[in-house]
């Protein structure tokens, strides 16, 4: 679960979450991300480092820039937790819906 905690903690910051959502929509370089946000480029770099340390994004050199993209595995533990939660909850719902007294 350490991955889930690191991921959730990294995304607790609203600016960082916004950066993550932009990268999720389009793999991007630092400059493009900073242009669209009221945050300085060094601040964006700082946020990207936290997202990368949490395993949520990866970067790749493309010419002189680094392109950031979402790591598919990054939110895997969060998803696993929710998946299990809903699986059990929906099973309980189904049992009641199929029972005589529903």
């Amino acid at each position: 679960m350490t991955n889930a905690v690191a991921a959730i903690t990294a995304l607790a910051d609203p600016t960082r979450r916004k950066i993550f959502e932009r990268i999720a929509a389009h793999p991007s370089a630092v400059g493009a991300l900073a242009d669209g946000l009221p945050v300085s480029r060094p601040a964006v770099s700082q946020h990207l480092r936290v997202l990368k340390d949490a395993g949520l994004v990866d970067d790749e050199a493309q010419g002189t820039r680094r392109i950031y993209r979402v790591r598919q595995e990054g939110l895997a533990d969060v998803r696993a937790y929710l998946d299990q939660f809903w699986d059990q909850s929906l099973a309980a719902f189904r049992d009641l819906a199929e029972s005589e007294d529903a």
Partner: peptide, 9 residues
């Protein structure tokens, strides 16, 4: 359940 990246602690 969508938008789970917005779940925070």
């Amino acid at each position: 359940h969508r938008g789970i990246e917005s779940l925070t602690l």
